[in-house]
Computed example of a mutant assay.
Amino acid sequence: MSEEGLMSLMEHLGELRKRLFVVLLVLVAGLVLGLFLAKPMYEYLTTTEQAREIGGFHTFSLWDGIGIYMKFAFIIALVPVVPLAFYQLWAFVKPALRKHEQTAALRYVPFALLMLLIGIGFSYFVVFPMAFHFTSEISRSLGLEETYGIVQYLTFLVNIVVPISLLFEMPVLFMFLTAIRILTPAGLRKMRRVAYFGMVVIGVVVTPPDVVSDLLVAIPLILLYEVSILMCARIHRKQLLKDAEFDSRYESAALSE
């Protein structure tokens, strides 16, 4: 490799490190902010219908209180970090994009925040109550006395909300990668069977073991995947038209010379 090529590679690595550092910095700042917002968030979650059904929480370790704060801080930190990560990725690949591609890719940054919030709402208001009531009914049918630790309750909640919320970023991520020419609709179609299988597995893991509950989670995720393919195909068609227009102009300029 030439010295010029090596310097170029080192510059790219330095730029990538700078982008990752910014994301990490915002993550830390989000965690700090989350620590301050953890208590009101905790007070809200412990007054919901599910929390009232339990009747009271218990702690089994001196570290449980700290664990609660950190779980809330992490969820709160995700809200600014996810769109920022998309922006930093856009900024990193921006020099390699054409002008119209730069503008098109940047539009997905606010959309990433919107999809994250939709994912949080879906997982918390639809999936979590369904999973909670099912597990509670099983315990009662076995004659078990429900004595829940606060950490176990919140871990159950977080393990449902975070994965599903991040999966709702799938259309944004796929469209973004298509806009910067890393992904193609044809590639997504080839991955369709594997993607479907993965989403059904996720539906089975985060919901009660019955077909209806599994489908209530798996079907929206599969629909998101199909919508992603359609949106990526639309973006790809525009790219092909732009490329054809660019090639036509280049050939015309070459002939005129």
Score class of each variant (00 low, 15 high):
residue 255 L to V: 15
residue 166 L to C: 11
residue 158 V to N: 05
residue 199 M to R: 00
residue 126 V to P: 14
residue 250 Y to D: 15
residue 207 T to K: 12
residue 106 L to R: 10
residue 145 E to L: 10
residue 18 K to G: 11
residue 171 P to G: 01
residue 120 I to C: 02
residue 83 P to F: 12
residue 42 Y to N: 11
residue 165 S to V: 04
residue 146 E to D: 14
residue 112 A to W: 03
residue 82 V to N: 08
residue 174 F to Y: 07
residue 257 E to G: 04
residue 21 F to S: 00
residue 121 G to T: 14
residue 17 R to S: 01
residue 41 M to F: 10
residue 37 L to A: 13
residue 39 K to Q: 09
residue 149 G to W: 07
residue 217 V to L: 13
residue 31 L to G: 01
residue 74 F to C: 09
residue 124 Y to V: 05
residue 50 Q to N: 12
residue 113 L to V: 00
residue 248 S to G: 02
residue 32 V to L: 12
residue 161 V to D: 02
residue 207 T to P: 07
residue 217 V to E: 07
residue 91 A to M: 01
residue 236 H to G: 08
residue 156 F to Y: 01
residue 24 L to V: 10
residue 175 M to T: 08
residue 135 T to S: 13
residue 179 A to Q: 12
residue 191 M to K: 03
residue 33 L to G: 10
residue 195 A to I: 06
residue 243 D to L: 11
residue 59 T to L: 15
residue 105 A to L: 05
residue 115 M to K: 09
residue 58 H to P: 07
residue 12 H to M: 11
residue 135 T to W: 13
residue 147 T to D: 14
residue 152 Q to L: 11
residue 120 I to D: 00
residue 195 A to F: 02
residue 198 G to R: 02
residue 54 I to R: 07
residue 50 Q to D: 10
residue 257 E to Q: 14
residue 139 S to Y: 08
residue 229 I to L: 03
residue 124 Y to P: 13
residue 211 V to A: 11
residue 102 Q to G: 05
residue 195 A to N: 04
residue 29 A to G: 10
residue 108 Y to E: 09
residue 34 G to F: 12
residue 207 T to W: 06
residue 157 L to V: 09
residue 257 E to W: 11
residue 233 A to E: 15
residue 178 T to Y: 03
residue 165 S to I: 07
residue 213 S to I: 09
residue 18 K to A: 11
residue 197 F to D: 06
residue 77 A to K: 09
residue 28 V to M: 00
residue 98 R to A: 15
residue 220 P to R: 04
residue 108 Y to S: 11
residue 30 G to E: 04
residue 94 K to M: 06
residue 195 A to D: 10
residue 87 Y to I: 09
residue 242 K to R: 15
residue 243 D to C: 09
residue 84 L to E: 06
residue 181 R to H: 04
residue 216 L to G: 12
residue 21 F to V: 08
residue 174 F to T: 02
residue 114 L to S: 09
residue 135 T to F: 15
residue 137 E to K: 15
residue 93 V to R: 04
residue 36 F to Y: 13
residue 75 I to G: 06
residue 257 E to R: 14
residue 55 G to R: 04
residue 244 A to D: 12
residue 226 E to P: 08
residue 23 V to M: 07
residue 6 L to V: 05
residue 224 L to C: 05
residue 166 L to D: 12
residue 35 L to A: 13
residue 137 E to S: 15
residue 84 L to K: 01
residue 253 A to D: 07
residue 249 R to Q: 14
residue 79 V to R: 13
residue 145 E to H: 11
residue 172 V to E: 02
residue 63 W to G: 15
residue 195 A to V: 06
residue 186 A to W: 15
residue 191 M to A: 14
residue 238 K to G: 07
residue 189 R to P: 07
residue 14 G to K: 02
residue 73 A to P: 05
residue 23 V to R: 08
residue 76 I to F: 04
residue 228 S to I: 01
residue 47 T to K: 13
residue 139 S to T: 13
residue 116 L to P: 12
residue 66 I to E: 14
residue 173 L to N: 10
